[in-house]
Design a protein around this nucleic acid. Structure first.
Length: 226
DNA sequence: GCGACAG
DNA sequence: ATCTTGTCGC
């Protein structure tokens, strides 16, 4: 699949922030009623020694969580890691990886926040707007927001609040295990995003999409060094 | 000024 | 995130 929208990536920090403010206007917070047959997982790893980024996209069958397709792309670090501008470092190879996919997914689970972001435009929202595809932001730790500890039962959740606004959910995917941070990426509601993350996390803290993508980037990075 | 800060 | 070391649980 090809990106619907494109913009320069070799830009300054100030230009990146301005771009986020413009593109954030395009984020859709409602469900699109398309049947989801395939779910994609995205992850990026970085080798400090070689200065290389590896992006991986996996496609899982949404009912069985069976791995159907996977692609990796190697890229160069073009932008430093700056909290709030994470997507400008990670997305260029991710976009290339999506162009290599044979199957087009109906939903993408990202390793990073969606609208739970200072300008409501985290990595998941950025990818969703550029590809024009529903995305979910799914982080192991929070970027911004305040929350109360959710109940210990699987499926329990608490609102993630920024200045009185609900920007995401702190979701317990496994009983008694540290919760994860779910937010709207693009073209999905927060409630539907939570449902999908729970469905995709039947056994572990993180969704199977994220786990598979994480495994793939680590293998690709290890293979480079041999 | 101080702390917090996706990966 | 990566890197490194040590410790614990399976």
């Amino acid at each position: 699949m090809k990106a619907l929208l494109n913009h320069p990536w070799n830009i300054s920090e100030q230009e990146a922030i301005q771009l986020q403010q413009e593109l954030a206007l395009r984020v859709i917070h409602e469900d699109c009623e398309i049947p989801v047959h395939y779910v994609a997982g995205v992850d990026v790893a970085y080798s400090k020694h070689s200065g290389k980024l590896v992006a991986a996209v996996v496609i899982l069958k949404s009912d069985s969580l069976e791995l159907i397709e996977s692609v990796t792309v190697e890229g160069t670090e073009q932008f430093p890691y700056i909290p709030g501008l994470f997507s400008f470092r990670e997305l260029p190879p991710v976009i290339k990886a999506f162009e290599k996919l044979q199957i087009t997914p109906q939903l993408v689970v990202c390793d990073g926040q969606g609208v739970a972001h200072p300008r409501r435009f985290g990595l998941a929202s950025h990818l969703g707007v550029l590809l024009d595809i529903p995305t979910i932001g799914c982080g192991k730790t929070k970027l911004i927001g305040d929350f109360e500890e959710p109940d210990l039962k699987r499926g329990a959740y608490a609102p993630l609040i920024d200045h009185g606004e609900e920007i995401g959910s702190v979701l317990r995917t496994q009983e008694g295990i540290k919760p994860i941070f779910v937010s709207v990426g693009h073209r999905i509601s927060l409630a539907t995003a939570r449902e999908w993350v729970l469905k995709l996390s039947p056994r572990y803290r993180l969704p199977e999409t994220t786990r598979q993508a994480d495994h793939l980037v680590k293998m690709a990075l290890a293979g480079r060094d041999c």
